[in-house]
Structure formats: structure tokens, C-alpha cells
Amino acid sequence: MAARAASSCCRVAAARRFLLARKKKALEAGTRKKLAGAKQKQGMPTSRRRRLEVIRRKIRALRTLVPRASNGELQDRQDRHSRLDELLLHSADYILSLQMQVQVMQFMVHVLNPKD
């Protein structure tokens, strides 16, 4: 009788473990579904996300090209917009300075090479 009680106790424990594991999987799956649904409902469309990622990549590339524009990232959204404005202004200044350097070098070549 004791063996029978022990085996039924083991069966009950095994059944509980099985049910708990099943509930846990169901909860995890439900959570994943809820998260996926929340991302789709609250998130932006995939095409817009792709466009934004392309823009972010281009901004990162511009930061690497323009001196004085490679400072750390800021978290606040307004700061990011002002940082983008600042980056574009630095880029415009840098382009103008490069154009001026080219003009000065062309002038120097013209003055030092009087054959033309």
C-alpha cells in the first residue's frame, strides 16, 4: 500500500510539473504574442523604419566626415534635433571652407605658373 501511495504521489508531482511547464510555455507564448502585437500596433510601419535607418546611417557617416561634429550621442529628443541642426550647420561651414581652400590653391597655381 505504501508503494502504491508513493507511486501515486510521484504521478501527482509529475502531473503538476507538467501542468506548470505547460502554463509557463503558454504564458511565454502569450507574452510574445502580446509583445509582437504591441509592436505592430504601436510601432511604425516597416517602410518608415527602413527609411529612418537609412537616414541614421547617413547621419553617422556625415558625422565621421565633418570635423567637430563627432561628439557623443545625446538622449533627449530635442537635443537630438538641435544636434542634427548643429551637424548640418557644421557641414555647411566645412563645405564652404573646403571650397575656399580649393579657390586659394587654384589662385596660387595661377600666380605661380604664369604660362597660362
Rank of each mutant, 00 (worst) to 15 (best):
R11S: 07
L84K: 05
I55W: 03
P114Q: 00
T31E: 14
A6I: 13
R80N: 00
A69K: 01
A6P: 03
L112C: 06
L112R: 05
P114A: 00
A15M: 03
H110Y: 06
G43N: 02
G30N: 08
F18M: 03
Q42Y: 14
S47C: 02
R68T: 09
G72S: 07
R32P: 01
P45R: 07
D76P: 04
L62T: 02
L96A: 15
L88F: 10
S91I: 03
V104C: 02
L27D: 11
S8H: 07
M1T: 05
A6R: 14
S7G: 00
R51Y: 12
A26M: 11
F18E: 13
A3K: 05
R68M: 13
R48H: 09
S47T: 13
R11L: 07
D116N: 15
A6D: 04
E86M: 08
S97L: 12
F18L: 06
H81M: 13
N71P: 01
L35I: 12
Q103C: 03
S82I: 10
R80E: 03
V102R: 08
I59S: 08
S91L: 04
D116E: 13
L89R: 11
L65D: 12
V102G: 03
A2E: 12
A13V: 03
Q78I: 13
K33G: 07
A3D: 12
V66K: 03
A38V: 05
F107M: 09
E28S: 07
C9Q: 15
L98R: 12
L19R: 06
R63N: 02
K25F: 05
Q99M: 12
Q78W: 10
A29E: 12
P114D: 02
L98W: 04
C10Q: 04
L98N: 13
S91G: 08
R11E: 01
S70E: 10
K25H: 08
L88E: 03
R48G: 00
A38Y: 11
L62F: 00
G72M: 03
P114N: 01
T46K: 15
R49V: 04
V54L: 13
V12A: 10
N113M: 04
V54Q: 15
L96W: 11
R60F: 09
